[in-house]
Amino acid sequence: MESADAPARRRRARRGQGRHLGEGDLAAGKSTAARLKAWILFEDEAGQSLRPPKARTWSRRGQTPKILVSGKGSGRVNLAGMIAVRPGCRTRLIYRAIAYHGRRNEKKGFRERDLAGMLDAAHQQLGRANIVLVWDNDTSHRDAAMKKLIAERDWLTVFYLPTYTPTLNPVEGVWSALKRSLANLAPHGTDALAALVKTRLRIMQYRRDGLLDGFIAETGLGLEPP
């Protein structure tokens, strides 16, 4: 397994240190989770604007249905989600949403401390167990501020997905299902969109039909320890 920083390659691996997760490294990641009795958390961020995703629908022949959507403003709901999995436990979905109305000095998205706070909440929700976090190479995941926050959490081990491999992250399945559920809807403003998004995610959160496990299966990753 390759460490995130060159000098770290010459040091003994330890918790709180980032690593690149290649195809051949999955077994090592699973072994780490098994050794630490940890939850594996896949994390990703996304967003939804007021313009709804396109989708198919029914209508009379020759009469294309139309939905009026306001193009004004820059309202958007920014999302951060985690799928938490551990053998023998129910798979969990944890999420946060920030409604951005386009106002001056308003928070536009998730910063390093927001993500760290979300990890702290997940740590509490999962019984203060160790966590193996798997996420992409976004700047906010790798900069000095994030590395410092990671190092301060001895219960956290971080792996980075290879570049341009969204298909390896099951949270992408959550975003895909969410966008399909919002198709052909025209919410009246950013707050209405935020409420709708949270409702859809809450429904996924409490489903017992294996939906979240299905998102993991779609990645082709086997998460049982080697």
Rank of each mutant, 00 (worst) to 15 (best):
Q63K: 04
K72W: 00
L221N: 06
R142P: 03
E112H: 13
M118I: 15
T165M: 05
K198R: 14
G22Q: 12
A195F: 04
I40G: 05
A194G: 10
R180I: 01
R56P: 00
R76H: 12
T163H: 01
E106S: 11
T139P: 05
T57M: 07
R51D: 11
G29V: 07
L156F: 00
F42T: 01
E112L: 06
T64Q: 03
D154S: 07
R86Y: 03
R90I: 13
A194Y: 02
H141A: 04
A217M: 08
R153Q: 11
R56M: 06
L182M: 12
L149A: 13
H123Q: 13
D143T: 05
R12Q: 11
A27C: 06
G29N: 08
V85R: 02
R103A: 15
E172W: 03
L223S: 10
V85F: 03
A121R: 13
A6Y: 15
P87L: 12
R10K: 08
I216F: 05
A46Y: 09
H123K: 09
D209F: 13
C89N: 10
L223T: 06
H20A: 09
S176L: 03
L211G: 08
V197M: 08
S140P: 00
P87G: 13
L26I: 06
A38V: 03
K148H: 11
Q205C: 14
L178E: 06
G22V: 07
A8F: 00
A129T: 08
M204T: 06
R111A: 05
V77W: 04
P52N: 04
T199H: 15
A129P: 02
A8I: 04
Q63A: 06
R142Q: 02
G117A: 09
G73F: 00
L149C: 07
A192H: 14
I203V: 14
V77G: 08
P170E: 00
I94S: 11
R113Q: 14
P226N: 10
M1T: 08
K72N: 09
L178T: 01
V69Y: 09
A144M: 09
A145T: 14
Q205A: 11
Q48C: 05
E112D: 12
R86Q: 15
G117H: 07
Y164M: 00
A6W: 15
A177L: 09
V69N: 10
A183Q: 08
M1Q: 09
L149D: 04
G222L: 04
L156I: 02
D25H: 07
I203N: 11
A122I: 13
R208N: 12
M82H: 14
S176H: 10
R60W: 15
S74C: 04
G62W: 07
A121L: 10
F42G: 01
D5S: 10
Q205N: 15
P53E: 07
G117N: 08
F215Y: 06
E112P: 04
I67V: 15
M146H: 06
M1K: 03
P162N: 13
P162W: 15
Q124C: 14
I40N: 05
L93Y: 07
A144N: 06
T91P: 13
E172Y: 11
G173I: 02
R11A: 09
R202P: 00
V158S: 02
I98F: 12
M82N: 11
D136A: 09
L68P: 11
R19S: 07
P65Q: 00
G117F: 00
T157K: 02
L221K: 01
T64H: 01
I98V: 13
A122N: 05
D44P: 12
